[in-house]
Amino acid sequence: MEAQRSGSGGGGGREFHRILEELRARIADGVYPLRTYLPSQRDLATEFDVSRDTVQRVLRELAEEELVEPRRGSGSRVIKVPRSQRSSTEDGRLRGGPTLGPLLSEAFEHSEVALDVYSLTAESLAAHLTVQAERIVGKYVAPQSIALRLILPSEDLPLPYPRLRDDPADPRLADRLRLISERSMAAVHRMFMSLAEYVPDVSIEVRRAPLTPAFKLYLLNGTQALLAPYEVVPRSIKLDSGEVVDALDVLGFGAPITRLVKDTDPDSPDTLFVESWQRWFNSVWDRVAETPST
Rank of each mutant, 00 (worst) to 15 (best):
E106A: 14
I136C: 11
L120S: 03
T130K: 12
V141H: 06
R95D: 08
A107C: 03
T99F: 05
Y161E: 12
R163D: 00
V206H: 06
A169W: 01
L159N: 07
E123V: 13
I146E: 10
V202F: 08
A142Y: 04
L177F: 03
H189P: 00
S111V: 07
S184D: 10
A133T: 13
A147S: 15
L179Q: 15
R163H: 04
E155M: 04
D175G: 00
I180G: 00
V141Q: 07
T121C: 06
E109N: 14
R93H: 09
D167C: 12
A142G: 05
S154H: 11
R207K: 15
D170A: 13
L94N: 03
D156A: 15
V137H: 07
P162C: 11
G97H: 09
Y140R: 14
V117R: 04
G92C: 06
T121N: 03
L120F: 02
L164G: 08
P200V: 05
G101N: 01
L179Y: 11
A147P: 00
Y118M: 12
L125P: 09
D116P: 01
A174I: 02
D167W: 01
L129E: 08
L120H: 05
R93T: 13
Y140V: 07
M193Y: 05
Q144I: 02
Q132W: 01
P98T: 01
G92Y: 05
L125E: 11
R207F: 09
E155Y: 03
